[in-house]
Design a protein around this nucleic acid. Structure first.
Lengths: 396, 396
DNA sequence: GCTTCTTTGTCCCGACTGAGGAAGAAGTCA
DNA sequence: TGACTTCTTCCTCAGTCGGGACAAAGAAGC
């Protein structure tokens, strides 16, 4: 099929497209109730969208007491690609125009192998998904990388954990390879957008999304929009100091949050505890696998290992300490905890909550939910699809 | 004279009013260059504004090579009132429509005397200013209080340092007494708006404004707009923990920033140092006055007293530590330091800068100015005038 | 099955808006 | 003084938009 070429001609059309994306197929009459347009105007705009092929007729709606209205929906053939590049793995998913995930692949891969190798992998995964028949092509792609991004250009800048990516023209290169529009953002922002669209943050205007993976980052949403900061590094909380005389960090400072907690730090601590014989459970896993990961700690904790539980608890306290400060500062309506370490689950959540509720003022925490993300691995890729659809569903 | 009754009828008129407010009197022709309106449309809107009396003709502009254009300006009789209620004093100022301060009074007063006494004082100051002849009445007032505010209603909520203010209908009461529209906000947000309008933060979209007075707070500006958080307590950084085993704070926690620095803590530390004989300079001042304030520490430091300098340096480190975290999180384009303690000046600024530039990542600090506020005591009142003018200069 | 009422979609008219051309007013510059 | 520039007003014309009228389609009640 021919790929999406048209773009909404005005804000009304953009508004309609987003309504159909977020609310699914809908009748013309009901859309009329949602937007403040006269019937004639609405009819004109809908007709124009039908002409462009962005939306299609979709049968008749149920009667609301009189003549039945015609349903319309976004073109069923539209496909968005969401790519979430993590520190240790790549996620690729295909969604329809309503951003429902139709196919999803995950592949372990070290981001330090560089952009060329990583994109080769991502593109082959996209090709594999297309080969299953769920997509004949892609109308747009949203991609997240684990580091700061100069958003307008779609170029990573000074990414600490991904040498070789600095200045790589991700947007342009990928756009060329895929033959469709591409937007690039920080992986944490993508997760925030995912949870906002389909997850636990629906209907919340201002929230924080803390992602604890190999590193630690924070997506900031202000008035429904992702806030990226002046140079695109907003939310980079992994290097906030939590202990003035603390552990040395890869960034050159001491006592950074990431040096004390996060996937990498947790694995290191667990191995150390195992070698020191403080945890039989972890020792067994270490001798079995040769190394430990956050998942091992989660499993050991689930098995009741006190050392593992203590590691999680201590880490939660550190993160909670930082989040408490951010809550005082930002006064969000919701805090979402997500990322690879979510496997640590409620032990982690409990110690974060304890810390935040104890340290922040009642006015800020009074009605503040702190919850785990709902979407898990699909948050990032859904956010990617959302990112590009926001771009494509705005006036040209 | 009759007070301002009309409001702009549409966004075009609002836009024109704000241009005239921020840029001063201007010619019709030049305004045409600034807004994207056709000549005919512009003429119509200007004529309507002239009819309402919000703007007036103001002679002829200089020629730009041909026929001279007619100048217009905001009605010269418009007067806004800016009221800045601090923990220990009240500032009241009168501005014209361009937000230039025409008269300014300051009076020491403890906010704990309660809203009734404080407003009595503020209203009498406003009356005194009016009696000088600079104003025949007020078209609007913006007021700042040292605590969180439920912004839409203009009501303080759970203010820690001002018992008796909780839930007091500031906006409604003051609006009744003054007979004009009133807006209420946190004093820190007002300071941020002041520095944004007339101070050092002109032309910066995203910045932080840290006010170190009796307590410590932070104004947050995102995309040119003050961000107030979900419950209006955003920027409340005085109770971020800087030392887990630190001093007990009035809020019930330990090691809060305010317990270690700020006007109140600094005075306490100085008195303690004086009594312990660690500083002859401060001892002299203590015996002379019976008590010490932040201003005494500033004077002692200016005189070269090492203990005073050390107190400032240590405090700057604490604040710098917190600001470093906020910079990593928020990635602002500018950090403004203001408030009563600005008298500590460059000693304080230097230690804050050191701390921030050392602890935050280069990407966030690379081009980040950290500067003292330009406006001093007028920042708050200017911000108040700006607050109410933003409200009045928006479509009804 | 018929009537009446409600809802939906289409068509059309009239009011309004806004862009831009033309002309005149008011200056500058040589 | 004359040529040129700039600014304002007036006017026309095209396009837009809202809403009424009407037809189509269905629901509810008898």
């Amino acid at each position: 099929m021919r790929r999406m070429t048209a773009r909404p001609a005005n804000t009304h059309q953009a508004r309609l497209l987003r309504l159909l994306r977020d609310g699914g197929p809908n009748s013309r009459a009901q859309l009329g109730d949602l937007v403040e347009l006269s019937r004639s105007k609405l009819a004109v705009e809908v007709d124009r969208l039908l002409e462009t092929g962005l939306i299609v007729a979709d049968g008749l709606a149920a009667s609301r007491g009189g003549r039945r209205s015609h349903n319309i929906r976004l073109a069923p053939g539209l496909r968005f690609l969401g790519i979430d590049i993590g520190a240790t793995s790549v996620d690729v998913a295909v969604t329809n125009a309503e951003l429902e995930v139709l196919g999803h692949l995950n592949h372990p891969m070290d981001v330090r192998e560089g952009p060329v190798a990583v994109f080769e992998q991502a593109l082959s995964m996209a090709a594999k998904l297309r080969a299953t028949g769920i997509a004949e092509g892609f109308d747009g792609a949203g991609i997240g990388v684990p580091g700061p991004v100069r958003f307008p250009e779609g170029v990573p800048v000074a990414p600490p954990i991904m040498p070789g990516w600095d200045g790589f023209p991700v947007r342009e290169a990928l756009s060329q390879d895929l033959g469709c529009p591409v937007m690039v953002d920080n992986d944490v922002n993508l997760m925030a957008m995912g949870e906002q669209h389909a997850g636990v943050a629906r209907s919340v205007g201002d929230f924080l999304c803390v992602k604890i993976g190999t590193g630690i980052g924070c997506g900031i949403v202000v008035g429904g929009q992702v806030y990226r900061g002046t140079t695109g590094s907003a939310g980079d909380i992994g290097h906030i100091q939590v202990d003035p005389g603390g552990r040395p960090c890869a960034c050159g400072n001491q006592g950074c949050l990431e040096a004390h907690f996060g996937g990498a730090a947790l694995a290191r601590d667990a191995e150390e505890a195992a070698r020191a014989g403080r945890s039989p459970e972890l020792s067994d896993r270490l001798t079995a696998a040769g190394r430990l990961s956050a998942a091992d700690v989660a499993a050991a904790a689930a098995a009741g290992d006190t050392t593992a539980l203590e590691l999680i608890r201590a880490g939660g306290n550190r993160v909670g300490q930082v989040i408490a400060g951010l809550v005082s500062f930002f006064n969000p309506g919701l805090v979402v905890i997500g990322g690879g370490v979510t496997g640590l689950g409620h032990t982690l959540l409990a110690s974060i909550r304890t810390q935040v509720y104890r340290q922040s003022l009642p006015l800020a925490t009074g009605n503040l939910p702190i919850v785990l993300g709902e979407l898990g691995q699909t948050a990032g890729v859904t956010g990617g699809a959302r990112l590009i659809s926001d771009h494509l569903f705005s006036p040209a």
